[in-house]
Amino acid sequence: MLSVDGLTKRFSGLVAVDDASLAAPEGRITGLIGPNGAGKTTLFAMAAGFLTPDAGTVTFAGEDVTAEPPHLRARRGMARTFQIVQPFAGLTVRENIAVGAHLHHPSRAEAMERADAIGKRVGLAKDLDRAAAGLTVAGRKRLELARALATQPKLLLLDEVLAGLNPSEIRDILPVIRAIRDEGVTILMIEHIMQAVMNLCEHVYVLAQGKMIAEGPPIEVSRDPQVVEAYLGHGAAARMQAAGGADA
């Protein structure tokens, strides 16, 4: 569904993403993990068209979309959420979702109806008439998800939709994400919460300092010494092995 090849992005001297490649196969949930500042969000921004890569290509459903602006990618069926939530603060929750629904429903009444249905699906039924600015963190994350879903995407790019949620809120939202996948939507998610990654993803990529350092099923990747070192520092993997994994 989505594949990025050799993506590179420099911000003056800093190489934020360095020759990174990944693929999100159709109908699967693919994860992208990595320590803070690894360049995950930058990679996402390039995939969705918000940043132009200095090198590399983005291919969506078999077509090269590297140079396409975000709104055209959205029309092709690519939807993203933002790590730092971006609600239309002055509008109600229903109106927020309706903006997404308008992509395929020109009529206001239809878009509002779709918004109702999607709002209910992600658990925002009670909040539909509230101003988006009045939502809790968990509510805003759900709103991000709902708006993206309202565009009827083929591919959903989720940028830390679980961050800032408490364990019970996470438990509530995991089935929602899985249900979206079951309907045939391909998902690529950036996530920090390993419990969720283990739970949802079939395949994960690990980005560290802009480079893709590992990929594979989550269990394997989490044991990869390179990955452990990327998270915990140089020599950590060796020390953990020496300690027999007791500290892990």
Partner: peptide, 26 residues
Amino acid sequence: ERSRFGAYLIAIRENEQAAQALGVDV
């Protein structure tokens, strides 16, 4: 107030980036 064009225009006022992500040709 009742049309898609208006909804898009208000969405741009509220948050241009989010509108773009939802397929709005800003």
